[in-house]
Structures are given as C-alpha cells and as structure tokens.
Design a protein around this nucleic acid. Structure first.
Lengths: 141, 141
DNA sequence: TTAAATCATACTAAATTAGTAGGAATTAAA
DNA sequence: TTTAATTCCTACTAATTTAGTATGATTTAA
C-alpha cells in the first residue's frame, strides 16, 4: 500500500464519478475542472482504473467514464491499489533471504512495519466509496 | 506523520540502544555495524533524536549515546516525529483557506485522509520502544 | 599525543512523483 | 461528411524528495 497524490487523485475522481453517476458518462474534462487535476494526468489514472474494472469508458464525443461497480461495493483500497503499484514500504523484506529473519537484532522492527502495513490496509478496506459521499461523518470504526 | 526509511532507521537504532542500554554509551559505529546503516547517516539522525531529548550523547573516545528516557516510556511516534519532519500527507490542506472547506465537492476526500492520518498516528502512539524487544508478539491491540 | 568518538554543514546521486507533450483512434452531432 | 469532443497510448521531462557522501571541527579517554 503506497500513498501518493496519485492515489488521492484517483479517490477524488472516483468520488466525483459516484456523485454524478446518474448523469451519464462523465468526461475527464469535467472532473479535471471540478477537482483541479490535469486532464493528461487523469487520463493516465483512468487507464489503470479501467484495467482493474472499476470504471467503464465510453469513447468519442459525449463519451466519458462511468462506474462499473456500485459505489457501495468499491473499497478505497481497491482504488489505491489500482493506481499506486503495491510497493511494500518494508524494505528489509526485499533484500533478505538470510539476515532479516525476525530473530536477528538486525531487523527487530520488522514486525512493527508489517503490522503498520496491515493496519493501513485494514483502514482502507473498511471504507467504501459510498461512505465518502456522506459528508462530515466518521468514516471508519 | 511521514514514513521513510530514515524513520525506520531511527526506530532500529533506538531499539538497538534499548537492547544494549546496560552496556554504557553505545557508539554509532557499533550501531552502524549491527544495523547496517551508514555511520554518517546515523550521525544526522542522532542529532535530531538528541534535540528531542530522546537520547543523550557522551562525546569523545569511549563516548556514544544512551537513552534519555526508559524504553517503556518512548512511543514509536516520538521517534518518527523526531526525525521525519511532520509533513501532512494531506495536500489539500496547505493550499486552502477558501476551496477546501470540507463542503465543496472539491475536497470530498478530505475527511478520509484526515482520519487515515489519525489512524496511523494512533498506531504509533500505542506502541512503545520496549514492545519491540519482546519479539514475535503482536504489538498493537 | 593519539585515536575514537560526536558535532556541523554542505554537497550529490538516485529514485520517485507529478506532470507535459504529441498524436492516434473513436464517435456523436451538425 | 466534417468537426469537435473525447478516450487511448507512449514517451519524455521537470520537480521534489530521499538517501547518502564528504569534509572537517571539536571533544575526551587512554
């Protein structure tokens, strides 16, 4: 789980789509204006969202994107995973076969990052796209 | 709360100090060798830890660092905050006076990142340095 | 006096992130 | 049938951040 503004943009854009989901296909131009994200950057993001079947595209004039899944069934983690390639923030894991075996002093913090990662993932698993639309509420818990 | 390998190194180094806390001052050279972190980089990290009164330094030959607080009273969040300047991952906050007021569609995801941040902070608040030394246990919960 | 250590600051290299640029393909509507 | 609006595709680049080096000064035990 990596957290960058690309992921943030993706969530914002998906929330936008969800808000206007009854208005037919939404063009990236619209989202670009409303959310203030560059069109070209949105294009890249939406290719990925489409590849993960979170959205469907309608090409040509009057085209755009629509959600391919109802917003109450889309986890935030689905969105973030789609656009930000899953790179573990643990870097002791990649190096090691030997060494970082959780027993040496060398990687005593291993467990810690591992659990943090689960913790963050868990957070994003619990929150659905739909939840974002109900504003000013506590999302998780 | 920012999460980088600098923060990871800091936690590793502090855990190392905690393990050897009865052995008098520990030199960064020792930590460097045990944890495989460059000495010069450790030096930078320890200046910050010292500024936050997490460690004390003893200069000169046979010098080194010792914990300034017992490990059961040091939260992981204290360590990470000390070395990784607190830069909010929310970037909608910095721009805005107007705009991102949590009511516009513009920053509908505001709450989400805010809560995530609390969530991560909360995780690191609950875990103490001492907890890392009891290996192979669940840290949080 | 020497060697081991911290302290301080500046620089640099690598990686990542965030975007731009330019055009091709598709399609609704005039 | 032409035009304009759109997605699609790929390559490039600029900005930022991160991670780490380099250099040398200062302190102190032996």
């Amino acid at each position: 789980m990596k957290l960058t503004s690309k992921g943030r943009y993706a969530v914002m854009a998906m929330a936008d789509l969800a808000m206007f989901k009854d208005a037919g296909p939404i063009s990236l131009t619209d989202i670009s204006l409303r959310q203030n994200i560059s069109l070209a950057y949105l294009e890249q993001i939406f290719i990925k969202l489409k590849n993960k079947n979170l959205v469907k595209s309608i090409r040509g004039a009057k085209g755009g994107y629509i959600l391919d899944i109802p917003p109450e069934n889309i986890k935030i983690s689905n969105i973030i995973d789609a656009v930000d390639e899953e790179v573990k923030m643990l870097n002791c894991k990649k190096e090691s076969k030997r060494g970082c075996n959780n027993k040496s002093t060398k990687c005593i913090t291993h467990n810690l990052w591992d659990e943090l990662d689960q913790h963050i993932n868990n957070f994003f698993e619990k929150v659905k796209l739909q939840d974002l639309l109900k504003k000013n509420q506590t999302l998780n818990k």
